[in-house]
Design a protein around this nucleic acid. Sequence first.
DNA 1: TTATTATATTATTCTTTTGTAATATGTCAA
DNA 2: TTGACATATTACAAAAGAATAATATAATAA
Lengths: 102, 102
Amino acid sequence: MLAKNISIPKIARKCEEVSGLLRSLSHPQRLMILGHLAQGPKTVSELQKLCDLQQSQLSQFLGRMKLEGLVACERKGRFQFYSAADKRIVELIGAIQKIFCE
Amino acid sequence: MLAKNISIPKIARKCEEVSGLLRSLSHPQRLMILGHLAQGPKTVSELQKLCDLQQSQLSQFLGRMKLEGLVACERKGRFQFYSAADKRIVELIGAIQKIFCE
DNA sequence: TTATTATATTATTCTTTTGTAATATGTCAA
DNA sequence: TTGACATATTACAAAAGAATAATATAATAA
C-alpha cells in the first residue's frame, strides 16, 4: 500500500499541469477517444463512429484536448487526422489499462 | 506514438469507472492529497497542513474521494486516518509521477 | 459535565462543464 | 461555380463542481 519512492515535491510542482490533463480524461467518452487515438491516428468521422458521439460534441472535445496538449491534428485533404500528442499520453493510457483493465 | 497492445474493448468496459476515478484526480489539490496518501496514512489535520486547504473543503474532498473508492479511512481515537484505498490507486499515482515528473 | 480538539455536514454563491441545436467554414468533385 | 461532404464554431439551458462560511458531531481530557 505504501510507495516510499513517490516524491511529493516532484508531484507538487506538476500538480496544476497534470491535474489539467487528468481532467481532460475525466469524461468517459474523452477517455475512449484517447484510447482509440493511442492506437493510431483517426479522422473525426472515424472517431464519431467508434465513440458514438454527436459531431459537434466530438469536435468540441477534440478542440479542448488539443488545447490541453493531449492530442495533435493534421489536415490531409478534407480530413483532419487526430492523434495522441506525444509519448507520455500514450504511456498514460497504457498505464491506465494495465492497472484497471487487467 | 502507437500502442498496438492497448485493447479498446477492455478500456471501453471500464470507461465509466475509470473516468470517474480520474475526475477525482483532476483537481490539483485532490491529486496532491492522494500523492501524500500514496506514501502512507495521514490524519485530516496532517493533510490540511501538507496541502494548505481549509478544513471544510479538505473534508469534502476526502468524503468525495472515499465515495469514489480512491481512499479509505479508519478512526483511531479522535483522529481519522486516511489512506489510499488500494494498490491500484498507489500504482496510478506512481505511473503518473513516472510519466510526468521524471 | 464542560471545554477542547478533530472532523463532518449543510447552505450558499459562483464558475465550469455538458448536451444540444444551429450555423459556419473548408475542401473537393462535377 | 455549385453541391456535397468533413469539420469547426457559437449560443444557450441544465447539471455538476468549487470556494467559503457557519454549524454540527464525535472523542477525549480536565
